[in-house]
Design a protein around this nucleic acid. Sequence first.
DNA 1: AACCTTTATGACAGCGCTGTCAAACTTTAT
DNA 2: ATAAAGTTTGACAGCGCTGTCATAAAGGTT
Lengths: 358, 358
Amino acid sequence: MSDTDILLRRIKERKGGSMKSTIHDVAKAAGVSMKTVSRVLNHEPNVADKTRETVLAAAAELRYSPSLAARSLASSKSYLIALLYDNPSPNYIANIQKGATQACRERGYHLVAEPLEIAGPLGAIEGDLSIDVERALERLPVDGAILTPPLCDNGSVIHALQRLKIPYVPVAPSASHGRVAIVQMDDVKASKEMVQYLISLGHKKIAFIKGDPHHSATPRRFEGFREAMRKAELEIRPDYVQSGDYHFRSGIAAAEALLQLADPPTAIFASNDDMAAGVISVANRLGVSVPDSLSVGGFDDTPLARILWPQLTTVRQPIEGLGFEAAKILITKDSQDETVRTLEHDLIVRGSTGPCLA
Amino acid sequence: MSDTDILLRRIKERKGGSMKSTIHDVAKAAGVSMKTVSRVLNHEPNVADKTRETVLAAAAELRYSPSLAARSLASSKSYLIALLYDNPSPNYIANIQKGATQACRERGYHLVAEPLEIAGPLGAIEGDLSIDVERALERLPVDGAILTPPLCDNGSVIHALQRLKIPYVPVAPSASHGRVAIVQMDDVKASKEMVQYLISLGHKKIAFIKGDPHHSATPRRFEGFREAMRKAELEIRPDYVQSGDYHFRSGIAAAEALLQLADPPTAIFASNDDMAAGVISVANRLGVSVPDSLSVGGFDDTPLARILWPQLTTVRQPIEGLGFEAAKILITKDSQDETVRTLEHDLIVRGSTGPCLA
DNA sequence: AACCTTTATGACAGCGCTGTCAAACTTTAT
DNA sequence: ATAAAGTTTGACAGCGCTGTCATAAAGGTT
């Protein structure tokens, strides 16, 4: 048997160059059992320092790297994290993904992307979604799933995940998820800071453009606006609060309404960048100078914010960080229960805001 | 043994509800051997129709779904495709990813995302990259990798992939890749069509803004411009050809130069949307009406194209299709060699182009 | 010194599947 | 009718790793 073994190995080496080595090879090289090698590689306790070093040296020597498949078959862990997403913004997803892969890479995990088709142009097609999730994940026993908005608030997805017993971390969900860890940012605080910054520039007539009411962040961003105004004892005029849907066009409409008011605001805080772009575009068209006659604030710091002229003062969400933390929580299961990780945002001041000259 | 087995199963059923079933269960239920079940599930030939039906029915009954880990351990296939990318545009990646996951899903594969850090703000850090690839993929024996630009032209990445013997499909690479299948679009033709469209509107004084010279598409898009101009026997004035780098700012700079010429062009074809946005922004600022006094064409059909005012006439790349085809080629290895799949683009006519009124 | 506890290591089975090979059965050719 | 060829099926080993349990070595306590 052993002879055959050696022979086979010889043949492999001859034709393939450096073949991948197994735990068995490392064990032989280090003069220990396979199990001990396994222990070292998995950072299990109760290994003598000297043994550990020997094993590590042998592993490095042989350029050993464990087979994920064998590992997961034997341990029923997959070393895989799924990123479940619908398609709100490519930018958002790309950043979540970047952060998540980074966390994965640090611990030998990998990220599998699972785009779900939740909504056509006409709205949600709730029914199929849990089936989608199941079909995607029942073959692939991932160790956890990251849920991005708006999926994190989708009942059927959550349900499917629970049925499959896959741990999940919702990113910026609208409601608390019972005893599940979540990662989020503080939209209320961020929005409040923006408004306070506007106030600090001397603005008193500040308008707000709301986003899509189905989005969980919408009421929060509005709440931040209200808190800041209340705290500064400024009036919130009903005609200064416009409804939008986070799309460019709705920013246009809102800005047109706002700027044609008899007593127009001196600052407009649009609750995302696309709508803020609409505002700036309308202002330019109407000959309203930004920021001299009108300050404009946005939210998200999308690439668009730097393309606008003037460049947009906005809030940068810690998107990458959210992805990183979500993956990390899933991988190191310790802090699983009820943890709420709230990451810091940044107020990015650019050219679209300036002192109130009115 | 068998008794213990049954006992264990009972226990599992009792506490877990519906446990996942194995091939063994299906085999017993269908009254055949495990191997036969395996054959049916893998669409292997030489299975009697009746047997196949029985097995399929049993599998459906038990809601059986195979374990990827066991499968890949036994067959040394992973049912995983890697998407390797740097970070040119989130939009591009998101679309490639969408197409690729779709192809994967159709055949029970999964897509793992592997963002690579090729370039900091200062440029490429070539050295580490192959190490990055190896670290990411040597543990995860993916069955293939999709390479997006600019990675598909990166020597060290290609080399790493070859060393690991992982088949790959470059998406829109600059050069032919020897005997490797590639997927691409026809930039020359698309660019030519745009220019021909401009010419059909009566324009004769057409300017072109080039992109980043390191990008493989850059010379191709310029070539399309040249071909169309030559074919229409129009002169290509050197001062009508500006250099850019695909970024908004370079579009601004180019447009300023172009529009302040003594004899300015009546149409500007910027070789991507960001630069076209720069052109439109400058035109608006200088009071040059688009499209009445100036037609503007872009390339890529990014979300930005619809946000601009007027909306941008541009070329839609078949990005999702490229992702789909790349994954498909990797999964069905038949057409592996030297295949070149060229997908169709679309000329999207919107408001930024109009008849030449000069 | 005899006992117990803790720490370090290894033997072994088996995770769920597929590749190999051989056996049984069916068809076709002679 | 009989050999040759094809078709359909199953037994079995083993992919590379980890969990379980047993054993061996070391340290602590009376």
